[in-house]
Design a protein around this nucleic acid. Structure first.
Lengths: 209, 209
DNA sequence: ACCTGAACACCGTTCAAGT
DNA sequence: ACCTGAACACCGTTCAAGT
């Protein structure tokens, strides 16, 4: 009954969580723009002003939702890296491909994270930390490949930023429909291949795998 | 006096142009979100509902502004290609770098063109045509390079989409501040180099230019 | 502590009415 | 043809007041 006590403390007791869940639902269904403070309140069965007891403003609420996305992205990156197995170049390709897949599969959420009104890393320390963590996975995979002589020896951070750019750009074009979503996986594969091998001919290379 | 007649026909006679100019100014100064139909009307010294005589709704007005951006982008691409001179690989690099430069130099406008609420190519045939024209420049540069054996022989459209992805992604990360804007040119250069040469080592290659 | 009702300052857009 | 005033249906947010 102790838990019931907590739950019943004023209406549902966890309005905060209810609001976040509602926002996440709406974002998934109808996009970030469809989220309104008033609508969230109504959905939670509470007055219009009640949400302001739990979040300073709309931005703060959305920042919290975005944070969850960053955490899931970081987890996806970590999993992708492992999936690459022993081969660090394969691990890197996996990371790039899974990044694009995450973005397309969570398009509306991704927009909140990286889109126009984007909750910047500066908005919350937790976001900065989660996003650094995702980036770190990429950098480490690069360093591992370089240590084995499998990648050219340039600044691994810069190289990571380039792979990030290509993945991010591809993801955006797919999400906005400028490239066909149905070909997402194909393009992602092509992207990671190309970033590794480049477009210049390789005279020494018979094994176009 | 004939021109004055035209100008004086109902207040300024070219409210349409005045509204577009005002919208462009506001977008440049304060971003797309700062554009309001009411504000535009006030700035033009006209009633709130007057703009609706010239544009069906806000989206139609913004589509017109975006179109101007697409035209300028296409012109920039064409100029970049020529700047590459005889060397088609250099032309391609120019295109990528100038694309990023355009995006960063016209950040708010670029957001309108490719951002979240983006006016999609489907919104206006003229946008589709201007954007196809820009893409065509890239494809042709690629085909020219392939004809001379300077690029691997894959689908030039796919290759163009990849370069576009990388450019677009880099541009977005720079605009949103996730990569430092001050290093835009450096990153753009690095991006086009990498997309050409790839990250895998090239044993035959002594001339790392 | 947590919630409410009323209110303020905004939006985009419509519509009957004026010249 | 082009413009206006008043109005409708929305926003985010504040603030005094209730329990």
């Amino acid at each position: 009954m102790v838990s019931d006590l907590a739950k019943n403390a004023y209406h549902h007791g966890d309005l905060r969580a209810a609001l976040l869940a509602a926002a996440t639902d709406i974002i998934t269904e109808s996009g970030v723009d469809a989220v309104t403070m008033r609508g969230l309140a109504e959905r939670a069965g509470v007055s219009r002003t009640a949400p302001y007891r739990h979040f300073e403003d709309k931005r703060a609420l959305l920042t919290e939702v975005a944070l969850e996305g960053y955490r899931r992205l970081a987890a996806t990156m970590a999993a992708a890296r492992e999936k690459g197995g022993d081969d660090p170049v394969a691990a890197l390709a996996c990371i790039g491909q899974q990044y694009v897949r995450f973005a397309v599969d969570n398009a509306t959420h991704y927009r909140l994270m990286f889109g126009d009104g984007a909750v910047t890393a500066g908005d919350a320390p937790a976001i900065k930390s989660a996003s650094k963590k995702a980036a770190q996975d990429m950098v480490e995979a690069i360093q591992a490949a370089q240590a084995r002589g499998l990648l050219i020896d340039t600044d691994p951070k810069k190289l990571a930023n380039l792979l990030w750019s290509a993945s991010h750009g591809l993801a955006n074009l797919l999400i906005s429909g400028q490239l066909p979503r149905s070909r997402a996986a194909e393009y992602a594969r092509y992207m990671t291949d190309s970033v590794s091998r480049g477009f210049l001919p390789r005279p020494d290379d018979q094994s176009a795998r």
